Simulated assay, not measured.
Amino acid sequence: PKVSYKETITRSAKVQGKFKRQSGGRGQYGDVWIEISPLEKGQGFEFVDKIFGGAIPRNYIPSVEKGVRQACLEGAVAGYPIEDIRVTLCDGSYHEVDSSDMAFQIAGAMALRKAMMAAFPVLLEPIMEAQVVIPEEHLGAISGDINARRGRIMGMEVKGKMQTVKVEVPQAEMFTYASDLRSLTGGRGSYTMHFSHYDQVPHKAASVIINQYQATKKHEEEEA
């Protein structure tokens, strides 16, 4: 099972993305300066054009945005979509002959990936809200198990000899929960679960995910 992680940033950063290639005839040239900054959770993506004085011709601005948006879909840190960022196009340069839509798309994507690494990126993970119904005598075991899954107990409710425990747990920790709950309660426990919100992955867990992605990416590049 795959977890729908997301990437975002915690600081602002201003970087240059410059794509320049010369091979025989006509070359390729695109040069952009962007600033990225974090948005409030759930705000998605904003692109702001602050080019003035013709630093980049107007017809290339959509190409820069297209490159930035494509890079956001592909991710920069661990291959997951980037969300809740504002990208401001603030400067750049062009070449009368060698500049093209494609060159500015590539420059925009290069700048976005570079900016992400400079803006203290973090991974976000889906947090699930679950209601676990168990016999009262299993409360200690269930509480310990939820803690081990990086979960939090949000509340409890007693109904006769049964306890309903309300918890929030990362989705990544819940894939084996049905069978584990049966084992812990002798088959007498049940639960329901739905998506609640996204939250930051702790540094240690995030490092494992990022390192796995980087290793896979390096292997694929060597195979190509």
Rank of each mutant, 00 (worst) to 15 (best):
E157G: 03
M174K: 05
Q171D: 08
A141C: 01
S143I: 12
Q163V: 11
R150E: 10
P170M: 03
S183F: 05
I142A: 03
R150K: 15
G144W: 08
M156F: 09
N147R: 13
G144F: 04
R152C: 06
I142F: 04
L184V: 08
A172S: 15
G140E: 15
P170R: 04
M174Q: 07
G144M: 12
S179T: 14
L139C: 06
L184C: 04
G160E: 04
P170F: 05
T185V: 03
T164F: 02
V169E: 00
F175L: 11
K166T: 12
E157H: 11
K161A: 09
M154T: 13
D180W: 01
I142N: 03
A141F: 07
R152E: 15
S143T: 15
L139G: 07
P170S: 05
A172K: 04
S179Y: 11
D180K: 10
Y177I: 01
T176H: 14
A172W: 01
R152T: 13
P170N: 02
T164N: 08
N147C: 03
N147Y: 09
L181G: 06
K161T: 05
Y177R: 05
M174I: 04
T176L: 11
T185I: 02
A141I: 15
Y177S: 06
G151W: 09
T185Y: 00
D145T: 02
S179A: 13
R182Q: 11
V158F: 08
I153F: 08
S179K: 13
I146A: 02
D145L: 05
A148H: 11
I153S: 02
I142W: 07
G155Q: 08
S179W: 07
Q171P: 00
R150Y: 10
G144D: 06
G151M: 10
V165G: 01
Q171C: 10
A178R: 11
V169G: 06
E168C: 00
S183W: 03
M154S: 11
K166R: 13
L184P: 03
S183Y: 00
S183T: 13
N147G: 12
K166N: 09
E168Y: 02
R182M: 06
I153E: 14
G151T: 09
Y177L: 04
M156Y: 09
T176P: 00
R149I: 08
G140M: 00
L139F: 07
I146M: 15
E173A: 14
G160S: 00
L184S: 03
S183D: 12
A141Y: 04
K161Y: 03
I146H: 00
T176Q: 14
Y177G: 06
Q171R: 08
R182I: 01
Q163G: 01
R152P: 01
T164C: 07
L139D: 11
V165P: 01
G155S: 07
R149F: 04
T176N: 13
R152K: 14
A141P: 04
S179C: 01
K166S: 14
G151V: 07
S179P: 02
M162S: 12
T176D: 15
R149L: 09
R150Q: 15
Y177H: 06
K166Y: 09
